[in-house]
């Protein structure tokens, strides 16, 4: 009996794989990539953002970030600005959700005012950088539609899944993004962003991946190049700490103002 079942099962399975559409395969990989990040709990990190214009002049923003994983919803995050000096002490609290708009509060230290803000301007630049708010937000799986394109080499001897992502949320500045995700550990190595006119607008390259808690990969350098303006922004990450004991209590309007 077993003699027959096994070949049948194999045949069925391969038929199944054959029948998987590029959309289904893209979604399956995105889901596996998301699952590989499950259970990180919380993390804190320091981020140094360096903006460069075409003339090579640069300016720096330093931000301390705290993230709390929320089961069954988007993550909660708190960003505390340190430089430029005139925005020191400003902080932002975000409760991200899948397709529903994120909840966002801004704390302005000069007035000690906590302001609920609209998170609609997703395509707007984050502090004048080449990163838009939507590039830095929590990347929930339901925010995009996926299409698997091919597998190809992507440097360092790595192999990557090339997947096209189309934003499923309103007000995105992009028609689509091409993502290179390594087949081994689902690290997002490269993204090409296509603007509303479908022209290649920006490229994000992430390098210096390090593994934390034996499971979670994070890059230490993310470089965003704008092909249309010649401007670029780099994000240097440091002091990554995981499971620091943060809880929901550290992500509310009071904590924002501390």
């Amino acid at each position: 009996m077993i003699k027959y079942i096994l070949p049948v099962a194999i045949a069925l399975f391969s038929v199944n794989v054959m029948a998987e559409t590029p959309e289904e395969k893209g979604f399956r990989i995105a889901k596996a990539a998301e699952a590989s990040n499950d259970g990180f709990g919380d993390n804190t990190a320091d981020m140094t953002m360096t903006l460069k214009n075409r003339a090579g002049q640069s300016s720096v923003r330093k931000i301390h970030s705290k993230v709390l994983e929320v089961k069954g919803d988007g993550d909660k995050s708190l960003s505390l600005f340190d430089t430029p000096a005139d925005v020191k002490g400003t902080s932002m609290l975000t409760f991200s959700h899948g397709l529903k708009t994120d909840d966002q509060w801004l704390y302005l230290p000069a007035l000690k005012r906590v302001k609920r803000i609209s998170s609609r301007n997703k395509s707007g630049p984050f502090m004048g950088s080449e990163f838009a708010f939507e590039d830095l937000g929590s990347q929930e799986i339901e925010k995009y539609k996926y299409k698997y394109l091919r597998e190809e080499a992507c440097g360092k001897g790595w192999k990557c899944h090339v997947i096209e992502r189309t934003p499923a949320y309103k007000y995105s500045g992009y028609t689509r993004m091409m993502s290179w995700i390594d087949t081994n550990a689902y690290r997002l190595v490269k993204v090409d962003f296509y603007d509303r006119k479908n022209a290649k607008m920006k490229t994000l390259v992430s390098t210096g991946f390090k593994q934390y808690l034996g499971k979670y990969w994070r890059p230490n350098l993310m470089s965003m190049q704008n092909h249309l303006t010649g401007k670029s922004t780099t994000l240097q990450w440091s002091n990554y700490k995981f499971r620091t004991g943060l809880s929901h209590r550290d992500f509310n309007k009071n904590a924002l103002a501390r």
Partner: peptide
């Protein structure tokens, strides 16, 4: 009322 990004540079 906030208008969508009004220029390519993303002004609000």
């Amino acid at each position: 009322y906030s208008f969508p990004a009004i220029t390519e540079s993303g002004s609000d």
